[in-house]
Design a protein around this nucleic acid. Sequence first.
DNA 1: AATCCCTGTCAAATCGGTTTGACAAATCGG
DNA 2: CCGATTTGTCAAACCGATTTGACAGGGATT
Lengths: 361, 361
Amino acid sequence: MRRVAGGAKPASARPRPPRRRARTASSLRDVARLAGVSLPTASQALNGRARISSETRERVRQAARRLRYTPHAAARRLKLGRSNSVAIVPGLNMTGIFSDLFYRAVLAGVGSVFEEVGCRMLIAPPLRPSPQTPPFVEMAQAREVDGILVAGVVDARWVREALGAGVPVVVLDNFVPGLAAPAVVNDNAGGAYAATRHLAGLGHAQIGFLGAAVDYPFGRETQAGYTAALRDAGLTRDPRLEAAVPIDAGAAFRHALDLLAQPNRPSAIFAVTDMLALGVMRAAREAGLRIPADLSVVGMDDIELAATTDPPLTTVRVRKDVMGATAARILLRRIAGETGAPPVTTIANELVIRGTTGGWP
Amino acid sequence: MRRVAGGAKPASARPRPPRRRARTASSLRDVARLAGVSLPTASQALNGRARISSETRERVRQAARRLRYTPHAAARRLKLGRSNSVAIVPGLNMTGIFSDLFYRAVLAGVGSVFEEVGCRMLIAPPLRPSPQTPPFVEMAQAREVDGILVAGVVDARWVREALGAGVPVVVLDNFVPGLAAPAVVNDNAGGAYAATRHLAGLGHAQIGFLGAAVDYPFGRETQAGYTAALRDAGLTRDPRLEAAVPIDAGAAFRHALDLLAQPNRPSAIFAVTDMLALGVMRAAREAGLRIPADLSVVGMDDIELAATTDPPLTTVRVRKDVMGATAARILLRRIAGETGAPPVTTIANELVIRGTTGGWP
DNA sequence: AATCCCTGTCAAATCGGTTTGACAAATCGG
DNA sequence: CCGATTTGTCAAACCGATTTGACAGGGATT
């Protein structure tokens, strides 16, 4: 190859120029130099409790301030062995960390706690029903995070893998028996029971149930609460009044239309989430039924929306923020080395009576 | 103090036992040892393109697999100078990263891009109107993240500070002129224009406007679009038909009641966000007006909710996911060193005509 | 005056990787 | 058969901090 005078940029051939860094942040070394002390002395002056004369300490502090010194995060992490951050893992039943009205509120509670203690929150890619190792496990193995908070349904196998890497895990809204990770759950059964008892107390005898698939604990627990309430109220179950649907207002709408089209239609419906209850309300409008005169509706969750529907929705308020904050605090304790957390913490909820429930007949 | 025999746990006095690590993850050194090669050879075999015999490479790979080796995140970051992660900063106008219907959709778009390239998302604590240095600036100075994505309103001063630390910044939904950080915004003026023209085209002459405070660009831009559309349609502005309100359905409800109580009430209202439009719809019900027969309503954003109201809301669809994804891609390019991004990227939106708008009279 | 104990500072090791350059062995061309 | 090149491996330096232990100098004690 002919070399053009001046060089056809043999960039890779000659030793690369040291590429002066864009605007290199100052390191502890710079601070030490400016303060006229050695590097370890500067370190001690800034955060050590070692024997440093107050005069030196002040000099180092000023130098650090002048240079806008902030310790390099990765360097500290490497040396200290802590990353001061946790991973938030959206579970299999979440559509996405930012796309779920329920978990969003839970995570607000989580966030407030971690923010308070200065712990970073890393949003892990949402779980997928694939046999591949999910990213959060690799994050654990890479010690990228000090702890992991899983929100929702997760394959126990991966949790064990993460625990095996020595990183504590707390599971939100999903108790897996036998797992060495504490869980924080809502009292789903209790909530369903309270909602159903409320309707029975108003005189309803035909109480419909719009539940979730029973292959998730949530589906089973709400089902159980509903059934127990019927029994305690002296009512008999009628399978024609019950349906299991995906958690989706559209699906609820269609199933509710079916329920309401029956000759022996329910006079009240308990839907296990507010989104489902919204679908029921839409179906009632469609069927020409007035709420609550012709049909009572109770939801569960108390998403913000619930208070502004027409009429406002009676619902079981799930303490989403408390769930989140509790899980966060448990995780922080685990990270700190404490082990004495109960395997499950159940958060009680509260019936909020608004405008969609009324007496019958 | 009397010491009880057996000791009142002088825990802090005696040297803590070395606390053997829970189950120490394997390091590259272990892999090298198992494979019978030196440490740098193992490194090269796993990810270098250097001259390693394929036999050795395979041996190292197997050893790594056997030991479930995952490189220590902090160590790589320190050496490579990249953290492979970005900070998401909730702006001043966000109630919280998880509590805002609009930004939530934007961030879903952001997330999909970063997830695809394996870039971690760190949720920075939300900005507060305080003079203190916000955490995201420290994250930049600590090189904790490679880039910063600010969602919403932010003090230009802090953005400059972060840029000064050499960390690229992209601002979402808020263009600050003169800032060396590219912005991605919605065409607010265009959307307001389209909405207003739509109403004018239906024959409405009294078009009300529920806007936002004009001290944010969003308020000014929508105001401008509304005004221009009136002018182009040959209508005259009437200040009694306009109101500026906080972005909040409750506030919209109250202001809309006032607008509708006037003798010369609007026959149509354009509200600059869907949440406001929901408030207007509630106010119309309260005032006994049917939609769209007595009052047409147009919103803006097209939050999920908009399609399920009764009747479904006509609105300006903001391409929230596109905004997010675009901003993410621009940031990635900035991180890679490219500088040729336009200072503002405006995302066009689209009028979605549903059931809340009708002809007049 | 000799010994001892503090006090304040710094040299050196470490965390777990990546990268450069040196070196020995193998291969090649003439 | 010799020098040049290529190939495969490893020693050493480095990223930016923290922490341990050594050391010099000054004051108190005997």
